[in-house]
Every structure is written in C-alpha cells, then in structure tokens.
C-alpha cells in the first residue's frame, strides 16, 4: 500500500496570506492622493480657478461634445474639473491633517492626566468631553461662517471641535487600562515620577490606538470639511474644495452630472480607503489579536 504525501495546502498559503491581508488598493489610492496633492501644479493640465465662459459645462472627453483639453469636462464657469479635483486634494489633506493634529494633541493632553490621575480631575475633564461631544458641530460651523465669514481657520476650528473629544475618550479609556498593568507598578517601585510614567511608560503604549483612530478620524474630517463646504460655510470659493464643487453641481445633476460626480468620487475613494486602512491597522495592532 502506498501513502501519498501531500504538502499541506495551508502551509503553502501561509506565505501568501500576509501579503493579501495588506490593503494594497487603499494604500495605493492614498499614496496617489498624497502625490497628487504634492505635485498638483505639475499634474494639473490647467488652472483650477481660471474661468472661460465660452466653454461652460463641457462634458467629459469621452462623451459626445467633449474635448481632451478638458478630460473631465468643465463647470458652470468653464473651469477645468480635473484641475480642480487635483488641487482639491491639497485642500482636503491640508485641512484634515492640521485639524487632526491640533484636535488629537488637545484630546491627548486632556485625556492622559484624566485617565492617569482619576478622581475629580477625571470627572471634570470627562464632563467637558461629554459637553463637547453633544455640541452640534455643523451648527457651530454655520454660526461661525455667518458671523466671521467662511475661512480656512473657521473650518479647521470646527473640525478640531469635532475631533478632540473623540480622541480624549479613546485615550482616557486606554490609559485607565494601561495604568493598572503591573509594569506601571514596577515603574513606580523603581522610583519613576508621575510625569515620567505618563510620558515614558503609558504614552508609547497608546501609539497603536492613536494610529487606528487617526486614520479613521482623517476620513471623518474630510467628510466634515466637504459637508461644510457643500453648505457654503466652509472653504470660501473660488478655492477648489471638493465639497464646494459637489455643491456647485447640485442643481445641474440632471443636465451636467460630471460637475458633482468627479469630486464626489474623490471624496468617496479617499474616505473609503482611510476607513479600510484604519480597520486593517486595528486588526494588526490590537494587542489582543497580536501574537505574543
């Protein structure tokens, strides 16, 4: 009798799986987005703001009546949509990164002492977070825009307001869990000061959480910026913000669908990629799922 020896399929597969698990497509899209933002002046075929009223509402090149001078067509003022979408990447990235940076930092600065010290400090700071979470951010954005006029600063402030309590919540919860761990006790026994324990022992353990949270929050920030711009209280025209462009086309959807569609697709792809990347990061970095 003969026994066939087969290489177990699982072993062959195992080499392939990690590579397949990496979200290649989202990463590629995000890389493309960053490159686009950096190289906007090189990549864009035309100016994002130059109007050409003789060439209003030209359809995309592959539709009848379109021309390759304007690959994605033109808007109501004859501006090149492709160029505007490309420059829009700059605005979206700049706004969301700045806002996440400021909001995240603020949230962490509030939450670390709250979680570590506990007691009354924690109570006060976390009630402040609850208040911040219950503020209708869009409404604040509208009020700000109406009173101070739409500006980059106003949009960033609104997103900061939206983002920091979310960071604070997450960081505080994590800090509470980490401070109970034995290695913190051991650090105390070794004579570390409070500040040292917070900065040297707790903070580095928060980094995975912050990475995951940030990738998801950048997506939320981009949506927020687009929403405000769509409502006309965000980035002031004629700057080519994606939200503004979607709003520009909203009355023309039936006749000139391309005005809204392409910036809409840009928002969709960016946010979707960020969310997929965030999910993947969470699975990868979660200590409970990670092999010890």
């Amino acid at each position: 009798m003969q026994i066939a020896i087969r290489v177990p399929a699982a072993r062959v597969k195992r080499l392939v799986v990690p590579l397949r698990q990496v979200p290649v497509l989202p990463l590629a899209i995000l890389l493309l987005l960053v490159l686009t933002a950096l190289l906007a002046p090189v990549l864009a075929p035309g100016s994002p703001t130059e109007q050409n009223l003789g060439k209003r509402l030209l359809p995309p090149a592959w539709v009848g009546g379109g021309s390759w001078d304007y690959p994605l067509g033109t808007d109501l003022f004859g501006r090149d949509i492709l160029s505007r979408v490309i420059y829009g990447a700059r605005i979206s990235l700049m706004i969301s990164m700045t806002a996440i940076g400021v909001g995240g930092l603020f949230g962490i600065l509030v939450a670390l002492p709250a979680g570590y010290l506990g007691g009354r400090v924690d109570m006060l700071l976390m009630r402040a977070v609850d208040v911040a979470l219950s503020i209708p951010t869009i409404l604040i954005g509208i009020v700000l825009a109406v009173t101070l006029g739409p500006s980059y600063e106003a949009v960033i402030s609104v997103i900061v307001l939206f983002v920091w309590p979310r960071y604070a919540r997450q960081v505080r919860g994590e800090t509470l869990a980490i401070k109970q761990r034995d290695f913190i006790a051991l650090a105390k026994i070794a004579g570390s000061s409070r500040a040292r324990i917070l900065i040297v022992h707790i903070f580095p353990n928060l980094v995975p959480t912050l990475l995951v949270l940030s990738s998801l929050q950048v997506g939320a920030a981009i949506i927020m910026e687009a929403t405000l711009s769509f409502l006309g209280v965000g980035i002031p025209p004629p700057a080519p913000a994606w939200g503004v462009m979607v709003a520009d086309g909203k009355d023309l959807v039936v006749s000139a669908w391309w005005v809204s569609l392409f910036p809409g697709i840009a928002i969709l792809l960016t946010v979707l990629s960020l969310n997929l990347l965030g999910d993947w990061l969470r699975d990868r970095l979660d200590p409970k799922l990670r092999q010890v």
Binding site: R181, D182, F183, A185, L186, A187, K188, I189, A190, G191, S192, S193, H201, P204, N205, V207, P287
Partner: peptide
C-alpha cells in the same frame, strides 16, 4: 519616597508576563 523606591527598597511582583512594558 521616589529616592527610596528602587534605591533603598525594591520589589518583585508576582506575574512576570505583565511586569514588563511590552513596547520597550
């Protein structure tokens, strides 16, 4: 007290699996 902890009096905890900081 901080000078005393670790310097004069030190302590070993029960569980070595959780006594060390995983990120250092």
């Amino acid at each position: 007290m901080r000078r005393i902890r670790g310097g004069c009096i030190s302590m070993i905890l029960q569980d070595p699996m959780t006594s060390l900081n995983p990120v250092f």
